[in-house]
Design a protein around this nucleic acid. Structure first.
Lengths: 168, 168
DNA sequence: CAAAAATTTTGACTTATATCAAAAAAACTA
DNA sequence: TAGTTTTTTTGATATAAGTCAAAATTTTTG
């Protein structure tokens, strides 16, 4: 199997949906250029869950892994070019290349560590510290993300975030 | 290799340390009877990170996986009996039984899901809702955990938690 | 079982952040 | 580039939760 043959290229315009929560996520996207986020709806409002930029993989984790529906949408914050890998092809890789299984397990470890840090940040920090933590983790891209999206990611209001930023 | 030969049994008294943060975590513990928690120190105070009861595995995740130091201690909340699996023996299993690699990857998926839910809970809920979420997730054991530990797990103060509980 | 230690509750007060509303600024678009 | 839409900032007020202190209760231990 030629991996490159299985990979397709797509482009999305700013604000365009890459994945819709009313479908099962069958593809994982490698961002070649641009910026995307996952979000879900809470009380009719969009809550940002995660941001990804160049050279990162993104999908709707539980939907992609379990091939079931989940709440997350993925959209483009900027015009974005991606490579798409279909879940079937990933499964093929996992089944035929043992080192893929290991790679997959290890990269989950990285994600796990990221989530643990985020939990600590959410539990014990003020809004200001949350913002600083965010700038640190997403330092390459935080200037490219609209304020309201950052606020909902951090679980604080847009107004509070605006005030924090004003004091710098 | 006989797995049972590699497993040792240990017992810990209430409040006894199972794992000390100043050592590398070389064992994973399967709780046969009892209740344990991981915690770390913040400003000299213990902050509970995680609770585990009967039939669950516990270790200091980053320390065990990466064989490096990490901040977490593990202690017994009640008198506890455990089975110990040494990291060497786990590595042996992972290397010799491909299905172990898969099992490991899949159970990480479960942990990941748990962490995602916890993040959502931390971001958007009041102290009361956090407590209710906790009672739900830990319904088997929440009565056995001292209030102060629950509060630090939730990232709220003991006084607030006490007041919430009073209103029931 | 009594004394000591640890844990939980209650009270008074403070503070960080949310909420609601409107103005200002920036980004699109016809 | 003027007008419209979206995003960000600012202001006034409300509220959930924190802090500090002490009392009450529960658990442990000699």
């Amino acid at each position: 199997m030629q991996l490159t043959e299985r990979i397709t290229i797509k482009t999305f315009k700013k604000k365009e949906l890459i994945h819709n929560a009313d479908t099962i996520c069958t593809k994982s996207y490698f961002i070649q250029k641009g910026l995307v986020r996952t979000y879900f709806l809470k009380d009719g409002k969009e809550v940002s869950e995660y941001f990804c930029a160049e050279s990162e993989w993104i999908n709707s984790p539980r939907s992609f892994t379990g091939q079931k529906l989940d709440i997350y949408y993925i959209d483009a914050i900027e015009d974005t070019d991606v490579f798409c890998l279909h879940v079937k092809d990933l499964v093929y890789l996992l089944e035929n290349f043992p080192e893929m299984e290991r790679y997959s397990r290890l990269s989950m470890g990285t994600v796990l560590e990221h989530l643990m840090n985020r939990i600590t940040s959410l539990r014990f920090t003020t809004a200001k510290e949350k913002y600083e933590y965010f700038c640190n983790v997403y330092k390459e891209i935080y200037g490219r993300i609209p304020l309201g999206m950052v606020a909902s990611y951090l679980g604080i209001t847009q107004e509070t975030l605006s005030r924090i930023r004003a004091k710098k």
